[in-house]
Structure formats: structure tokens, C-alpha cells
């Protein structure tokens, strides 16, 4: 009795810092966000105390950025997956001694600032970049790449590839080679082995890679500005405008809060689904 009580006390003490952290940096900001979202805009911008739901009524004026965000996040994640999976497969199964060198080559560019790397794409996709090369080769005339949805997807795939690649690589690398050998011995061809053994065993990596890409892309700000020319706004851009330019904090808070709520449902739903499909993900508990 006493020992259990003591153990309860000591585990409460051990959990203390985490609970405090959670209250301070997770719950408190959300409370502030909610309070601001039901307030009114000050005459010179900012926030004045009040209680109104009008800000939530105005959310529909930001419907386009919301839809853009969801659409580009889904497409971007899907394309990143399609690019990353074969690459991860090659690294894990075929690269042999080159593996570490290739992994380093993939990761080292990401030590440079994302801003600089994305800015470079302006010149690659612009008139004098890839379109000029293709035109000189006679492959395409008057191709327009910069400031298009295509450019935004390129930006997403380029910037988020490692977040997709690494979890898939890890799950592929962990697969016991004897399982695939057994599949072969039992008469399965390469495609059947891939479909029935490799792919299901790498599912946890795929599912957590998708989550790791999808969530930060939902909060993307830079790519739509640099590669989309500010023509396809994301939610992050709409929020930056509301807080920094029109200084309408209450509407900004309402928008941010609603989006956090929506995202929570998506993430919880996703992890329920994936647990059923593939068991607990490596990222579980982190997200």
C-alpha cells in the first residue's frame, strides 16, 4: 500500500516537467488563441477584449487558401511518395557500399537554408532556365513553369523529400532478407514478392513518411510566395497577412484555431486508420 502510494507520487513528480511543458506551451497558447478569436479588432489593429462569434462567420472569405492548402498538401504528399519510394528501395536494397555516400548526398543539401534553395528554383523554372533549355532542344515551345501549380508541387517535393525518404528507407532496411528469399523459394515472382512481402512490411514507413510531409506542407508559407508568385495562397500566407499586414488578430486567431482543430481530427483519424492497417507507427507519440 505504502509502496504503491510512494511509487504513484514519484511518477507524478517525474511527469511534472512534461505536464508543465504541456500546459505552458500547448494548452496556454491555445487558450490565448481562443480568447483572441472571440475578441474584436482594435482601431489600429491588434486585439480588443470582447465576445463575438463574427470572426468565425468571416472564415468563408478565406475559403480559397484553405482549399489550396488541402489540395496542394494531398497532391504534394502523393508525388513526394511516388518519387521517394523507388529511391528508398534502391538505397536499401541495391545501393550496397554506395549507400552511405548516396544518403549523404541526399541529406547534405538540406544543410543550406530552405529560402536559398527554394529561391534558386525561381531561376531554374523561369524563362531562362528549364524552358529555355527545352526550347533550344526543340522539345517544347513557350513552356511556362514558374508561378504555376506545377512549380509549387516541385517546391514541395524538393523540400520535403528527405522527410518521406528516411522513414521508408528505415522500414525497408529492416526487412529480413530471408523473408524475401522465402517468398522466392515458394514460387513468387519479383512483382508478387514486392506486392505481398516488401510493400506491406514497409507500410509503417510509408504511412509515417506521409504524415511527416503532409503536416508541415499544410503550414507552408515560403513555397507559394516564391514559386507560386503569390497567386495560389496557402493558409500560412493568409495568416501572415492577417497578423502582419491587416493586423486583424481576431480573424487570424479564428482561422488558425479552426485549422488546428481540423488538423487534429485529420491526424487522430489517420493514426487510428494506420494502426489498424500497420500497427503502431514509429512516429506515434511524436505526432
Amino acid at each position: 500500500m505504502t509502496s504503491t502510494a510512494r511509487r504513484g507520487r514519484s511518477s507524478a513528480v517525474a511527469a511534472g516537467p512534461a505536464v508543465l511543458w504541456f500546459l505552458l506551451f500547448m494548452i496556454a497558447p491555445l487558450v490565448v488563441l481562443f480568447v483572441v478569436s472571440v475578441g474584436v479588432r482594435g482601431p489600429g489593429g491588434g486585439y480588443l477584449p470582447g465576445f463575438t462569434l463574427a470572426n468565425y462567420g468571416e472564415l468563408e472569405t478565406r475559403l480559397v487558401p484553405i482549399l489550396n492548402t488541402v489540395r496542394f498538401s494531398l497532391i504534394g504528399t502523393a508525388v513526394t511518395l511516388v518519387v521517394a519510394y523507388p529511391l528508398a528501395y534502391y538505397l536499401a536494397m541495391k545501393a550496397g557500399r554506395m549507400r552511405m555516400v548516396l544518403l549523404a548526398l541526399i541529406i547534405v543539401p538540406f544543410w543550406t537554408s530552405m529560402l536559398i534553395r527554394t529561391y534558386a528554383w525561381i531561376f531554374l523554372l523561369g524563362n531562362n532556365g528549364i524552358p529555355e533549355v527545352l526550347s533550344t532542344l526543340g522539345l517544347a515551345d513557350d513552356l511556362r513553369l514558374l508561378n504555376t501549380p506545377f512549380a509549387i508541387v516541385i517546391g514541395i517535393v524538393y523540400n520535403y523529400l528527405p522527410l518521406m525518404l528516411l522513414p521508408i528507407y528505415v522500414s525497408l532496411e529492416r526487412i529480413d532478407p530471408s523473408l524475401r528469399a522465402a517468398s522466392k523459394d515458394l514460387g513468387a515472382d519479383r512483382l508478387a514478392t514486392f506486392r505481398q512481402v516488401t510493400l506491406p512490411l514497409s507500410a509503417p514507413g510509408v504511412l509515417s513518411g506521409c504524415l511527416l510531409v503532409f503536416i508541415p506542407v499544410m503550414g507552408e508559407y515560403l513555397i507559394p510566395v516564391l514559386l507560386g508568385g503569390g497567386r495560389s495562397y496557402f493558409l500560412g500566407n493568409a495568416l501572415a497577412d492577417l497578423f502582419l499586414q491587416s493586423r486583424n488578430w481576431p480573424l487570424g486567431a479564428a482561422l488558425a484555431g479552426s485549422f488546428i482543430l481540423l488538423m487534429s481530427f485529420v491526424v487522430v483519424g489517420y493514426s487510428r486508420l494506420t494502426r489498424r492497417l500497420a500497427g503502431p507507427l514509429p512516429t506515434e507519440g511524436v505526432l
Binding site: 500566407n237 499586414q245 493586423r247 486583424n248
Partner: peptide, 15 residues
């Protein structure tokens, strides 16, 4: 300082 101008601009960009 005009909130109306700022909002107008934000709406144009978010359209």
C-alpha cells in the same frame, strides 16, 4: 492605417 484597405488587399490575395 486603414483596416479596410488592408482587408481589401488581404482578400484580393486570398481570392
Amino acid at each position: 492605417n486603414s483596416p479596410l484597405r488592408a482587408e481589401t488587399w488581404a482578400r484580393i490575395k486570398s481570392s
